[in-house]
């Protein structure tokens, strides 16, 4: 068990040793986002903006305009909501090498409550031209994603989580290419981030009911792996998307756009309803907000009726 933010911090520190062009920025949360691991190794290439996120994004843009690959980290709510305009004009429009690696995304932030639970960040980031969005499911994938996005030009949003999650061993990571974690023929569960683990649990639950569920880890939410989606739609005929994010504008919306235009397929979107979260333990919130494996299995069964 390990949090994706841990995988990020360790990989960033490793990347810093390999690529002297990499710089990192944070906004007074370097312990939580794990950029401290980079800061300790490369203090001259780390810039703390203090509690001033907008300026952090601008500084990252200026560093990128000077040839650096800039990783900028803070909590997902602040990175995307507070800095949307800075990301839009200073980073995405000029398509700069700024990698916004935001931790504490989704409802699994837990006790900090609604102000700190980013449930709209994927929607915001995927709406920006030039911006690509990656949501790793475990620490290993987060680490691989760090190297992949550092080597891929232009801005990225890397969505990281607070809680420890199981490690998915033996996965390849190619940007824009989904991983099939488990094959199945009755329904396809397309998940990203933390929800990949809930989807795997759902597949087990479904198996006990005689339903064969495919589980697809859609780690790159933009650009989406259209091929994998259309293949799953063709082969299973039913799609359930799973995200720790609002049902508005996230992975489910992205998948629905493709399917509605290219291969209309019955589907369900598992995500939070049009509502803010609240304080509680991550496991309690996952249950209350309809994001558990049991909820995913229920959505799949609705499609099978």
């Amino acid at each position: 068990m390990k949090a994706t933010r841990d995988g990020y911090g360790e990989a960033l520190a490793e990347l810093g040793g390999k690529n002297p062009n990499v710089v990192a920025l944070d906004a007074d949360l370097s312990c939580s986002t794990r950029t401290k691991l980079f800061a300790d190794k490369f203090p001259d290439r780390f810039f703390n903006a203090g509690v001033a996120e907008a300026n952090m994004i601008g500084m990252a843009a200026g560093l990128a305009l000077s040839g650096k690959v800039a990783f900028a980290s803070t909590f997902a709510v602040f990175a995307t909501n507070r800095c949307f305009d800075q990301i839009r004009v200073s980073v995405a429009y000029p398509a700069l090498d700024v990698k916004i690696a935001a931790s504490h995304s989704g409802i699994t932030v837990g006790e900090d409550g609604a102000s700190h639970q980013a449930l709209e960040d994927i929607a915001l980031m995927r709406s920006l031209p030039n911006m690509k969005v990656v949501v790793p499911a475990d620490a290993i994938e987060a680490g691989k994603a760090v190297f992949a996005i550092a080597g891929s030009p232009g801005p990225f949003y890397l969505r990281l989580g607070r809680p420890k999650v199981p490690l998915l061993e033996g996965q390849e990571f190619t940007l824009g290419k989904a991983n099939v974690l488990r094959d199945g023929s009755d329904v396809a569960l397309i998940a990203c981030g933390y929800m990949v683990h809930e989807a795997l649990e759902a597949a087990e639950l479904l198996k006990s009911k005689g339903v064969s569920a495919r589980v697809i880890n859609m780690h790159t939410v933009k650009p989406l792996d259209e091929k994998a989606i259309l293949k799953a739609a063709k082969e299973t005929g039913r799609i359930v998307t799973c995200e720790e994010h609002s049902r508005i504008g996230g992975l489910g919306s992205a998948v629905a756009s493709i399917l509605s235009e290219k291969r209309p397929t019955p589907m369900r979107i598992v995500g939070t309803d049009d509502t803010f979260g609240e304080s509680g333990l991550p496991a309690e919130l996952i249950k209350k907000y309809g994001l558990s494996g049991a909820h995913i299995a229920k959505a799949a069964k609705e499609l099978l009726k």
Binding site: V23, D44, R45, F47, A54, N55, I57, G58, M59, A60, A61, G62, L63, A64, L65, S66, G67, K68, A70, D85, Q86, R88, V89, S90, Y93, P94
Partner: peptide
């Protein structure tokens, strides 16, 4: 950035100085 000589996208006020600060950090580095 399409225009030769333009160093940053601006127009949304308040952002350019931050970008300049980033450039100054890079120059020092």
């Amino acid at each position: 950035m399409d225009t030769p000589g333009v160093e940053a996208c601006t127009g949304s006020l308040g952002q350019g100085l931050s970008v300049a600060v980033g450039m100054a950090l890079a120059a020092k580095l």
